[in-house]
Design a protein around this nucleic acid. Structure first.
Lengths: 135, 135
DNA sequence: CATACGGTCTATAGCGACTATAGGGTCAAG
DNA sequence: CTTGACCCTATAGTCGCTATAGACCGTATG
């Protein structure tokens, strides 16, 4: 498949992004409005494909659309220090690590609670609900 | 503070739930509509306080509002087997554990990417952006 | 040639779990 | 008597999509 005059469905297939999502990215200004072919279909080129791939990769890495907007802004300014990009990455990594810690504490608590269930009883003397009520 | 004729702000203080959130819980049917005092203010009793505390505790444990609705439904049916409550907890725990695994993979990748930054360069030869583009 | 299908277009509403804002009424203290 | 803190309703916004409706376009098959 060539990399010019791509229809939105082609872009979708090539990047694993749903068509509606691509249009959504355009609407919020993350992807530039592409040219249109005679039948009013969006027509994308290789640059658009690259940009969308970048966006998807960053989404997979858990960056927010706003962070991606920032990264894209930086990427277009060749003289900018690399350190700024790393700062965004580092901030994001810290958030992810904090979230992991939170979830681990949560999992421990859930295991603790679940261990109280001896299975045979009824709600009337359910220790799980007790644990959720007070504790 | 006594546990009857509580105003919404009292409930808010006692549970750490924002006033708007309490009204929201009422609107979606998670909290029953309380009585009103002469001035049309919501007036809560100890049962409402308990119910809200339970909801908040479950939210802290990461349950969705729908799961909490289920748990509350079960809690009111005294003869129901305890096992059903544990099933919800176990399902939720599995989700949390999976999320932890996902985030750990993500953190590893972000660390990997961030390690490529040697700090001194510019965007022009930024290896972080490279890593985000392809990889 | 007609029809059916899949793709594309626009526009709008919905999801979860709130949060924010506007525009008002109530109440106790100074 | 005014100030400020609280309460009320109703509506819109957040994030990152997803779903739906209603219409047009393009190709393959009968």
């Amino acid at each position: 498949m060539k990399r010019e005059n791509l229809k939105i469905g082609d872009l979708s297939d090539l990047t694993g992004t749903k068509v509606v999502t691509i249009r959504y990215y355009e609407k919020i200004g993350l992807l530039p409005s592409p040219g249109r072919s005679a039948n009013n279909y969006r027509s994308y080129d290789a640059a658009a494909l690259d940009r969308l791939r970048f966006i998807r990769r960053c989404r997979d890495l858990g960056f927010s659309l706003d962070q991606i907007r920032e990264l894209l802004g930086m990427a277009s300014d060749v003289a900018r220090p690399c350190r700024e990009v790393d700062a965004i990455t580092a901030t994001h990594l810290a958030q992810v690590e904090r979230k992991i810690a939170d979830l681990q504490a949560l999992a421990a608590e859930l295991r603790h609670i679940s261990a109280k269930c001896r299975g045979g009883g009824t709600i009337k003397n359910c220790r799980i609900l007790d644990a959720m009520s007070s504790d």
